[in-house]
Nucleic acid binder design. Structure first.
Length: 344
RNA sequence: GCCGGGGUAGCUCAGUUGGUAGAGCAGUGGACUGAAAAUCCACGUGUGGGCAGUUCAAUCCUGUCCCCCGGCA
């Protein structure tokens, strides 16, 4: 068997950071394995659900066999009760990137959580952690008084941010209020603070396809997860953490299986709801990543082109943003009828 | 075959005392600064089962036919 020659790391700029993003089920793991065969990479998880150790199957974490291809970091290391936020993840990811870099390896970010990529690559306001007691109180209030009432309250203290969000957006309203209460500064004040310049030179690689093309793949994947023991995984997780409100249980598939285990849903209903929610999620991811014009898009099965694309990234500065010739990347058109119809 | 209920958006249904109709879900597009697999926003023309009749006007009333569901045969 032909073993491809590995590329010397010094070819790349010191802060070079390839990133694989795209909707769930599009083949990011497969692409990362193709890259692992060519470069001395370490894969760093950028997915908010794949951090939970109780749900390796349901959250589609790379299997043990897949993880043996190269180091994989920040996968399956938290219990279901543990809460992880974008800022905390970004700190851990930055540490992992530095550590792998120091070992002479090339970090590769792989995941589908747009906010996590943004927090790491663009930075995030250095807001101190809000005490759980404070945030619990605001969450209780929004339930009791309704989001519009608290939005009006927010408008008194932080009119700029209140104007940016909708009166029904209870999550953002409570977040802004709890930050205001616990720090004495408005959410807008924190956002206005200058962030340090970019620490990385990302090469953003998207793997995308239309929702219509993705849907059958998602359906197959749910079946494969069930065949692989997703139900048993959920049952075992339930024995360890009985609180369905725990962060780990909020993943798509987990919540539906929980309801099936409680007898609220038949397995068929569970599967249908699971697919529906996964599809809606993939659509939101596509909306997020489509808006990022720095992403160069590929389709599933174009792993060889992705390898060539990374290989063609020039040494030195961020000139790699210029698309090398001979790479068959397909941009996402804004016209949905044209978007994925380019000939192969 | 008879009796009853029903045929309205892709699905489940609401409503109109006659003035050509609207919710939820689905779908599409979008937003996104520590729950982000989260949270939220915008977008609703459909031969109102077919035909005929009454009427200025029928999705609504009448007749008839077709189809579905339940019951009786």
């Amino acid at each position: 068997m032909h073993v491809p020659e590995r590329v010397e790391l010094p070819r790349f700029s010191e802060h070079f950071l390839p990133c694989l993003c795209g909707p769930t089920g599009a083949g990011k793991t497969a692409a990362s394995l193709a890259l692992a065969a060519r470069f001395p990479i370490s894969v760093i998880n950028a997915d908010s659900r794949q951090v939970y150790r109780d749900f390796p199957i349901i959250t589609a974490q790379p299997s043990a066999a897949e993880q043996s291809a190269c180091p994989h970091l920040l996968y399956g290391y938290l219990p279901a009760e543990a809460k992880l936020g974008a800022g905390e993840w970004a700190r851990e990811a930055a540490a992992a990137i530095a550590a792998e870099r120091a070992k002479g390896r090339l970090p590769l970010l792989v995941g589908g959580t747009g906010l996590y990529f943004k927090a790491l690559l663009a930075g995030i306001a250095p807001i101190p952690e809000v005490p759980a007691e404070v945030s619990a109180r605001w969450q209780a209030r929004v339930l009791a008084e309704g989001a519009p009432a608290l939005h009006a309250l927010l408008a008194e203290h932080d009119p700029a941010y209140a104007a940016k969000i909708h009166p029904n957006d209870r999550q953002r309203i409570t977040r802004a209020l709890e930050v205001w209460e616990s720090t004495g500064r408005s959410f807008s004040w924190w956002h206005a603070r200058p962030l340090p310049g970019p620490a990385y030179r990302p090469l953003k690689i998207g793997i995308g396809l239309s929702l219509a093309d993705l849907e059958p793949l998602l359906q197959q994947r749910i079946k494969a997860m069930l065949d692989a023991g997703a139900l048993q995984e959920a049952r075992a997780a339930l024995a360890r953490c009985t609180d369905p409100e725990a962060p780990g249980w909020s993943g798509i598939g987990c919540a539906e299986l929980y309801r099936h285990l409680r007898g609220e849903l038949s397995l068929d209903e569970c599967r249908a709801l699971w697919l529906k929610n996964t599809r809606a999620y993939a659509k939101r991811q596509l909306t997020w990543f489509r808006a990022d014009k720095d992403i160069t898009w590929f389709r599933p099965g174009q792993a060889a082109d992705i390898v060539a694309f990374v290989e063609a990234a020039p040494a030195g500065t961020d000139a790699f943003r210029t698309k090398p010739s001979g790479v068959r990347a397909r941009p996402l058109s804004s016209d949905p009828r044209q978007r994925f119809n380019q000939s192969p």
